[in-house]
């Protein structure tokens, strides 16, 4: 596979065409994939928490949905992307453990998804597809060729969104 870049937990990266961005084992974290169909430039963030406003230590901007989206768009602009061309895909935000759904810790996946959507909406970036929620982990790969997002799971199949 050509030029695969791994994005770790609380990390983000961008790539020109041809390139593949991947992040392994998304649980309650959310993978935010951005794609520009005209330049084929891609960007992927692996965010852990919804908001940098609620955290005491918010130095790592790739960790939070709100700041990671902004940084991702900035980095893609530097490569020559026009924000108006961007489309987004979301994956992850699962609830890995079923019990105690009331507690904040358990709903974190859902909150990550909501926060990501809010930020994308604010920046007027349309979300064209998503595979979020559920109770299973996901590995995702974003291809610069056509912006397709491969989702691999254990026991829940493989698909493209």
């Amino acid at each position: 596979m050509e030029n695969t870049i791994k994005v770790g937990m609380a990390d983000l990266n961008v790539s020109c065409h041809p390139g593949v961005l991947t992040t392994l084992g998304l649980g309650s974290c959310v993978g935010i994939a951005l794609y520009d169909p005209t330049t084929k430039i891609i960007g992927l963030a692996h965010v852990m928490l919804p908001s940098s406003m609620q955290a005491k230590n918010n130095s790592n901007i790739a960790k939070f949905a709100d700041t990671a989206v902004v940084k991702l768009v900035e980095d893609m602009k530097k490569l020559g992307v026009r924000k108006e061309n961007l489309v987004a895909k979301l994956a992850g935000g699962a609830q890995m453990f079923a019990f105690n759904q009331q507690s904040d810790m358990m709903r974190i996946g859902l909150r990550n998804v909501i926060a990501s959507k809010e930020k994308l909406e604010e920046l007027k970036i349309p979300i064209i597809s998503e595979d979020t929620g559920g109770n299973h982990g996901r590995t995702i790969e974003l291809f610069s060729e056509d912006g397709r997002l491969l989702i691999k799971t254990i026991g829940h199949g493989v698909k493209y969104i």
Binding site: M9, A10, L26, G27, S28, L49, A55, N60, H136
Partner: peptide, 27 residues
């Protein structure tokens, strides 16, 4: 301790649960 809950899945996905908690205070 509460009653336990169990999950079988990718290491990254399972580890994200404690990692997120740690994420609230540091890196």
């Amino acid at each position: 301790p509460s009653v336990p809950d169990i999950a079988i899945d990718m290491a990254g996905a399972i580890l994200s649960v404690p990692a997120i908690e740690f994420g609230k205070i540091g890196d």
